[in-house]
């Protein structure tokens, strides 16, 4: 059974340990600006919302890539960027309707969540279980998928 990240914003305290863990694990530095998961703060509502790529079936980023630099990891289901092939054209960054693939000007490549090869550092670091890594069927991804389907131009969902 493939697993996916489950995010429960109600449990998030805004401690940002997920951002620290992600940037350290992937970029080798404690630098939240390099994190692939972001915690959005809504102070008026008193809410914190961790947010990252849902590894959506539509894979807008992968479909839009002109040089086949994004592929599906068969083991985890994650859509993974090949640094060797990415030319840094950034088309994926405007094609992804979730805004979860971004350009890193330091490397000239795009970055996105790759589920840390099946052991996501953000979920391990989260002290309140706001981020967990569980069976895909349990995560209530349907809401995000519904959003994805609405963005569809016609052909994508049924292809």
């Amino acid at each position: 059974m493939q697993k996916s990240l489950h995010i429960d914003p109600g449990k998030c305290t805004g401690c940002l340990q997920c951002e620290m863990a992600c940037s350290y694990d992937n970029e080798g530095a404690f630098n939240p600006s390099k994190s692939r998961i972001k915690v959005f703060a809504f102070h008026d509502e008193g809410r914190f919302v961790p947010y990252t790529c849902t590894q959506c079936d539509e894979a807008w980023c992968m479909q839009a890539c002109p040089v086949d630099a994004i592929s599906v990891d068969a083991a985890t289901g994650a859509k993974v960027v090949s640094d060797a092939r990415c030319v840094g054209c950034k088309v994926c960054t405007i094609a992804c309707p979730f805004g979860t693939i971004n350009y890193n000007a330091d490397t000239g490549k795009v970055v996105k969540c790759d589920l840390c090869e099946g052991d996501p550092a953000c979920a391990t670091a989260c002290p309140t279980d706001a981020i967990t890594f569980i069976d895909a069927n349990w995560t209530g991804l349907e809401r995000m998928r519904a959003w994805a389907a609405k963005t569809d131009s016609g052909a994508q969902a049924s292809a």
């Binding site: 405007i94 094609a95 992804c96 309707p97 979730f98 805004g99 979860t100 693939i101 971004n102 963005t151």
Partner: peptide, 10 residues
Amino acid sequence: RTDHMGVVRG
């Protein structure tokens, strides 16, 4: 700016 610009499309 480059961060999260895809949401504009969404």
